[in-house]
């Protein structure tokens, strides 16, 4: 009986390690990916205040804006990240990231943005 419990605990621990919140099984967390790829324009805190903002013709989206972000569907956010702003009728300043992040990482990023805005999509 004890042996069974130990084995079950070990399996559960491994499962939890691989499905931890915001953790990509391939290595980087969505929070770290956000800092490296997104923060340069959207800001370290996700409030649209990235270091590149000053000379941009269109301000980067504020991902902490609950009202604005609530208006977006998860599928729209996914499309914008994967294929760029033009895929959802927005600015070309938002580039496609599907050549850099995996599909799983992009899906995790959508979930991370929902954490930043404390909101759900329509």
């Amino acid at each position: 009986m004890i042996k069974k419990i130990i084995i079950l605990s070990a399996i559960l621990s491994i499962f939890m390690a691989f499905t931890g919140r915001g953790t990509n099984v391939f290595g980087e967390t969505s929070g770290d990916n956000y800092k490296l790829y997104c923060a340069q324009c959207h800001g370290l805190k996700g409030n649209g205040s990235g270091v590149n903002k000053a000379d941009m013709s269109v301000a980067p989206r504020n991902h902490t804006d609950t009202i604005e972000m609530s208006r977006l569907k998860d599928s729209d956010i996914y499309e914008a990240i994967a294929h760029g702003g033009t895929a959802v009728g927005k600015s070309t300043l938002m580039p496609p990231w599907n050549g850099v992040m995996t599909d799983a990482e992009i899906k995790e990023m959508v979930a991370y943005l929902r954490e930043l805005c404390h909101c759900k999509g329509e």
Partner: peptide
């Protein structure tokens, strides 16, 4: 912003510094 911008950037209200 340095070799890796993340290492030398701090959050700012209007724009990160």
């Amino acid at each position: 912003a340095g070799t890796v911008f993340l290492n030398y950037t701090a959050p700012g209200p209007e724009i990160d510094q």
